[in-house]
Computed example of a mutant assay.
Amino acid sequence: MYTKTGVCSALPRTSMPRPMRPRAQGEPRMSELNKRTQARHEVERARFLGDVYDLLAILRREPNELLPFDWVRHLAPEGEHSLGVQSIPVDQIIGSVDRYREFDRHYLPKEPHLDERWIGVRAAQLEGKELPPIQVYKVGDLYFVKDGNHRVSVARRQGQHYIDANVIELNVAVPPEEHDTLRDLIIKGEYARFLKETNLDRVVPGHREIRFTTPGRYDRLLEHIRTRQYFLDRKPERAGLPPVTWEEAVESWYRRLYSRVVENIEKHDVMSRFPGRTEADLYLWIMDHRYFLTQKYGHDVGSEEATRDFRAHHAPPLYKRLGQRMRLLLKGQLEPAM
């Protein structure tokens, strides 16, 4: 730069451009490093939160694991079909095919050695890259991840409501629910087989759900239906008529036995004395009690008398009922108004 006198003056030191070190091939840009650092902090916080949820689950005596997809076989699925790529609710993903030990029920990561995979997915998300759809099995309204567990974990951690997924739907008669345990799925599978064997959905459309809290009870209902069929066949008014069909016996059992006991349970407010139990549980107990009273008095006392007597003599003491009710309230399995 020349002045009016023709003397060259040096440029100010602060105005001179600094030499740039060429970026080595494969070296990440600083923005990429920042994104990976942010992702690393996020996965560490996610695992810490997972430890907190584990502790709460222990204190509440509740499970905090993803459901293994293998458990679905207990629901007796009858085939599958593809639904293609859809947007599915992230909070309805409750299980995994083979990664159910690596994430908790909130899909928080549990294994530190898999952090890099989580960080890679989150960093790609921060860079605005489009992630491929995950792959899931749909069972009822819930989903099990076949591929893309880390993408689900990141999406859920970021509060994402929907995620694209390639969906394969399994056909089940009794769908699972979010907080089901292995025992719950076994019972639902037994219920599915009961519905198939009785054709109850077709014989009595709109029937009440028949749910037990203990496995192995639906076989006893089938025994009741067979007994009903036997006695219906031997009624005097059926002389000369064709034998009672299985479906006729199913309908008669449901309408004349099961429904009447349930009506009496509601009429005499029996459910309130057995918190955590179902109508089906009480039906079996009351039918057993009816048989006991019939043997005791030498004549059939009927379902209503058996229901009243069972309520009066076999309900748990008040302190036990209150304790059970409190446990159910803490688990969110009982409405406070009940």
Rank of each mutant, 00 (worst) to 15 (best):
T3W: 10
K4R: 07
C8V: 13
C8K: 15
S9N: 15
A10M: 10
L11Q: 14
P12F: 06
R13Q: 08
R18E: 12
R21F: 11
L33S: 13
K35A: 15
Q38M: 15
V43K: 00
A46F: 00
L49F: 11
V52C: 12
I58S: 11
R60M: 12
R61H: 11
E62Q: 14
P63Q: 14
R73A: 15
A76H: 09
E78A: 14
S82R: 07
Q86I: 06
S87V: 04
D91L: 00
G95F: 01
D104E: 06
H106Q: 12
R117H: 06
V121E: 05
Q125S: 13
K129A: 11
K129F: 05
P133L: 04
Q135A: 14
Q135H: 14
G140I: 01
L142C: 03
V145D: 09
V152D: 09
V154Y: 02
A155S: 15
R156C: 12
Q158C: 04
Q158W: 05
Y162N: 13
V167Y: 11
E169I: 04
E169Y: 08
A173K: 14
P175Q: 07
H179D: 10
R183Q: 12
L185E: 01
I186E: 06
K188G: 02
K188C: 03
Y191T: 09
L195I: 07
E197K: 05
R202G: 04
V204A: 10
G206H: 01
I210P: 00
R211L: 03
F212N: 10
G216W: 10
L221W: 01
L222M: 15
L222K: 15
L222I: 13
H224F: 05
I225R: 13
Y230W: 13
L232G: 02
K235W: 00
E237T: 06
L241Y: 13
W246F: 05
V250R: 02
W253T: 00
W253N: 00
R255Y: 03
R256C: 04
R256E: 07
L257R: 11
S259P: 02
V262L: 02
N264C: 08
K267P: 01
V270S: 06
H289P: 02
F292C: 03
T294A: 11
K296F: 15
D300Q: 02
D309P: 10
H313S: 10
P316K: 10
P317H: 06
R325W: 03
M326W: 01
L328N: 04
Q333R: 15
